[in-house]
Amino acid sequence: MRYYFKIYRLFFKQYLKSLMQSKLDFFIGLFGCLFVQASGILFLYLVFEQIPLLDGWSIKELAFIYGFSQIPKGIDHLFADYIWLLSSQMVTNGEFDRYLLRPIPPFFQLLCDRVQLDAVGELLVGGLLVYISVSNGTIRVTFIGSILFVMAILAGAVIYTSVKLFFAALAFWMTNSFPVLQLGYEISNFTKYPTSIYPKGIQFVSAFIVPFAFASFYPAEYFVRNESFITTIIAEVCVALIAWVIAFSVFKKGVSVYKSAGS
């Protein structure tokens, strides 16, 4: 474990250094992410101009759910962004070769290959909305609550990474799974709202097929409405574990059928 930390630290240091050399790119990316977040909040704002409650939820509660869901998303975005390239080009152009030629696990190398600092945009907006929710009393801070909050966020990040890894690994069979990953990931844009507004089928998909609901709405529900601890936080951790096991097995299976480009 220390071995991996040491290697990761070396990479991380380099990314911070290269950031200093291309500040403009960083700000473009940061603003990009902030814009996406802002448009989501603007949508909520415009809708709530017309209605007082959405399916029984107030705008304050929705703002917390929205903000909470951005934090695991941001963590995944920060550390596991290179998975996108696995889905789009690494199999097509044979770039994945080099992962198989080093004595460290391919997935770890995938993490090492990029630290995406644009994610700071999501983390900032998420953090800010959670902070606002705490200060206006939507959320009460307790000691146990804080621990569970951290746990929920970490499990959420695992769910995000697992879903991405699963879809990206399909590239080993399809050569390019980018569109599938993109649209699977798209579901995360809908689980930042209460999933009860969707028909049963979609609720099922967002909970058990592409389980983003467990990374956002369900745990957020626990903090806003004191829903049962078991059906929210514990369930989230279980889903995270299962999702990870499935995604990682598919990834491993994919590596074994990897064709490598060229002759």
Binding site: G56, P179, L183, G184, E186, F190, I202
Partner: peptide, 29 residues
């Protein structure tokens, strides 16, 4: 790339449905 092609179409249409349901919830509220 027909494998990704089918899924691409299905997922894309799904995302429109999701948007529509969001609107339906807004109307029923």
């Amino acid at each position: 790339y027909k494998g990704s092609f089918y899924l691409f179409v299905i997922c894309k249409v799904l995302s429109v449905f999701i948007t529509y349901y969001l609107w339906r919830a807004i109307f029923s509220s």
